[in-house]
Amino acid sequence: MIAVLVPIDGSAHALRALDEAMAEGRRSTEPFSLHLVNVQQALAGVHVKTFIKRETLEDYYREQGNAALAPARERASAAGFSVTVHIGVGDPGEVIAQYAAQQHCTRIYMGTRGLGSVAGMVLGSVAVKVVHLSTVPVLMVK
């Protein structure tokens, strides 16, 4: 059983990672499952907690997450893959690594802008954080 996870943030890099993951799926002779995960930034300000219901906030996360996932989902189903989607909230690196472990994914296909280590450090590369935190192998796709 092969289960791969592709984090989707709505960028072209993420879709390239998805293409690579699907290529592995086509080569694979074992049962193959494809997970897509999107991570929304938590809006945890004190006034948000005071004035906005949690449901409203979760609706918002869900709407934004589904919008970001839509192109990837279409691409996968056009290629004949069925997917499991997940929308998480919080620090992207942490959520991705955690989800991969929970779902017993065998590999993460991580799209990255491919910035150098300095720019990555300044811009806070999610890919770097995933590599750091993940307990399963991570394949970087540039």
Partner: peptide, 10 residues
């Protein structure tokens, strides 16, 4: 928490 829409989960 999993916020993915249930009807499209699989």
């Amino acid at each position: 928490v999993d916020l993915a829409a249930p009807e499209t989960k699989r």
